[in-house]
């Protein structure tokens, strides 16, 4: 995470996107969570030399981005920013695995390149799916969904509070860094000592804040349990969404659709 300040802006932009009321946004969060997980699992269940079979899965993000009115360029940019780890581990495949797997006329493709391409496609598909989930659902609703689906309550509450104070403390930290950068010259003052003092200060303030929040909770009858009332209802439309997509994923996993289409074209050309 090189530039965390801009990451915070990202969080708040994704948050803004989740306040729309498109057909995708209105779906039950549990349904979206399950469908997303099923999508990811199906994509990852392909063999490592798989490319063509993965491509039809693009349809899921494409449809959701279109119907959910999500900015495609922005999402792609976010995917690219997150790419390095998968890229650096994946790039060793072409170096290690040099056996020729694909022969396209004079062009020979080694297994390594094929599996590398496969890794990058997986990466794009899974990351986009997760980003779409958050941009079309909102973090709080995802937490509610987790809790309703049996995640421990303390984890759900912890997630909600963390998200709530992310913005408050993010502001505090950026004020601290701004104050420092206004008074540092030629990287003097950016060293370890100043850094730990700043973090220490921030931590003390954080601990004080936790104490005040606790007081505010106690003043309103807090007894260790946070009650959140948010009725969630799964309707026919939600079920249709989940079953429809899951069915399509299974079909796309089982049948090599691009192969057929390519075959047909090849037949026609003959």
């Amino acid at each position: 995470m090189a530039n965390i300040e801009s990451s915070f802006l990202d969080v708040s932009y994704l948050d803004t996107l989740s306040y729309q009321t498109t057909i995708i946004h209105r779906l039950d969060p549990r349904i979206k969570l399950i469908t997303t997980l099923f999508f990811i699992a199906t994509v990852l269940s392909f063999g490592k030399y798989e490319i063509a079979g993965l491509i039809p899965f693009v349809i899921y993000p494409v449809v959701l981005i279109a119907l959910g009115n999500l900015p495609i360029a922005y999402l792609l940019k976010k995917v690219l920013v997150a790419a390095p780890f998968a890229f650096f581990v994946g790039i060793f495949n072409p170096l290690m695995d040099r056996a020729v797997l694909v022969q396209l006329g004079p062009l020979e493709l080694s297994g390594g390149w094929v599996s590398f391409a496969s890794i990058m496609i997986r990466f794009i598909l899974t990351v986009t799916a997760a980003l779409i989930l958050i941009a079309s659902t909102g973090f709080n609703s995802v937490c509610m969904a987790l809790e309703k689906m049996g995640a421990p309550k303390s984890l759900a509450v912890q997630l909600l509070l963390l998200y709530r104070y992310l913005f408050v403390l993010g502001d505090e930290a950026s004020r601290l860094t701004r104050a420092r950068s206004l008074r540092t010259f030629e990287s003097r003052g950016l060293g370890f000592k100043v850094f730990t003092n700043m973090i220490g200060q921030l931590l003390l303030r954080t601990l004080d804040r936790a104490k005040r929040v606790h007081l505010a909770m106690r003043c309103r009858g807090f007894d260790g349990e946070i009650r959140v009332s948010r009725p969630l209802k799964i309707g026919g439309r939600d079920l249709g969404f989940m079953l429809g997509w899951s069915g399509l994923f299974v079909l796309m996993r089982l049948y090599p659709i691009p192969q057929w289409m390519g075959g047909m074209v090849a037949e026609l050309l003959k």
Partner: peptide
């Protein structure tokens, strides 16, 4: 049971994020 833990955990989680915004140069 120590109910002051509930807000403390949440706020400290946010602290870790915020603290990651601040960095130092490694000489």
């Amino acid at each position: 049971i120590d109910d002051s833990r509930v807000p403390l955990m949440g706020v400290l989680g946010a602290f870790i994020f915020a603290a990651q915004m601040i960095n130092f140069s490694i000489p």
